[in-house]
Design a protein around this nucleic acid. Structure first.
Lengths: 230, 230
DNA sequence: TGTAATCAGTTTACGTCATTTACTAAAGTT
DNA sequence: AACTTTAGTAAATGACGTAAACTGATTACA
């Protein structure tokens, strides 16, 4: 009787998530699939919640990896930072679409209540994911800085928060650039989640062309130019 | 023994949703709260899903009403369309924050699978909600049209979808304006859901000042001017 | 007025869920 | 050989959605 591993358990959970949707991910189903009984899983995770959070972490890592690969591919054909940013954003959308269950799990409403940022594995992976985009953004800023809001022009309350965030991540960017990053991320997240969650379906069947417009706008926001036909 | 009404049942579900979170909304809990047993609820709704969808519809209606009221209040102090739009967007954010459980229910990930837009009560209310914003947008366009993309400049695939959507809602706006509306709604939804779902918490504690910047950008998108200190 | 139908529930039951507790068999350690 | 640890099972608890059968009251009609 070979002992199971946390890795196998998480993979099984992932498979059930993908094949049968989020609500099918029960301890019983996972255990059944592995030829075990549900309580055995408590040897590896303290609760279902704990297991799920670890799966969330894995998903974040996979997403980070996929986007990293897309950036890598874009790098091969020249050192164009615009191409890399576009590739990263497009890959984010593509991944989200082909992994809707996972997307809902990591970017949907955090049901368990007010527990965001409690420093667990999933949060750490989430931050690493943010880091993928931030690294790209940082590279862009170094290579070709674009006009941003001056610190004095930023609302004092917001400025203080941005300063703290900048300290936490240890970046030497102007506050306006940090702000631009957060605003871009918000736009990207909004466009993708709106689409993946089906909330734009009342008007559009295929929002891909509109996403291209979002990309163009994001590019413009950071001083780049992107014309929606690649 | 007074008979219960669907209205009472939905209200009870709402109360439990607000007081104890989304996962506490069980048929048993609702029935318990009403001094009944769970199977009795099947006299009024065909399933839990059916009940929830009806609650979702009510929530949409309430949100529509609240935003309508906010627009009404903004109308009292002059006929400024900018003030009304800002008030509507601000009320949307305020409501979403003070009704996080409800927000998650109507704007979160549609767990049951691929069933969006199947024409039930909830969908109808969702469209009515969209109509509140659209009416405002339409008023804006009539009063002071702003430059929009010409039809020939819109991706053909997107153009076709926009034409169909325009026919469905029976509006006589240029396609570019419809597109602008959808893009504004996407931005607004993105900013609010990002914040309410706690996904901006890794950087900011209070995203209110950043939302003001979003408002300024939205205003600019439709040819208006909004300066973030009211 | 008597009887049948309908309404608004209850009771019971089934299978599922997460989780706890107590137990067991094997493997490793001293 | 005696022990501890590991990795599981079995059984139980209390919650869940849902289906079926049943019950008592109210209403409709002859």
């Amino acid at each position: 009787m070979r002992a199971a591993t946390t890795e196998e358990i998480k993979q099984t959970a992932r498979r059930i998530l993908v094949e049968q949707g989020p609500e099918a991910v029960s301890l019983r189903a996972i255990a059944r699939e592995m030829g075990m009984t549900a309580p055995a899983l408590y040897r590896y995770f303290t609760s279902r919640e704990d297991l799920i959070r670890n799966v969330v972490g894995d998903i974040f890592n996979e997403l980070s990896g996929d986007i990293g690969l897309a950036i890598g591919r874009a790098s091969q054909s020249g050192e164009d930072i615009t191409a890399k940013l576009i590739a990263a954003c497009r890959e984010f959308r593509r991944w989200s679409f082909s992994h809707q269950g996972e997307f809902g799990l990591i970017f949907g409403s955090p049901l368990p209540g007010v527990d965001d940022g409690r420093g667990d594995f999933a949060d750490e992976c989430g931050r690493r994911f943010a880091g993928v985009f931030f690294a790209l953004f940082y590279e862009l800023w170094r290579r070709s800085p674009f006009p941003v809001r001056a610190p004095e022009e930023i609302d004092p309350g917001l400025r203080a928060q941005l300063e703290r965030f900048r300290t936490v991540i240890g970046a030497d960017l102007p506050l306006g650039a940090i702000l631009a990053f957060l605003r871009c991320w918000t736009k990207l997240y909004g466009a993708v989640s709106m689409e993946v969650f089906g909330h734009i379906g009342f008007a559009l069947d295929d929002a891909a062309p509109m996403f291209e417009l979002t990309l163009a706008e994001l590019a413009e926001d950071v001083g780049l130019v992107y014309v929606p036909g690649s």
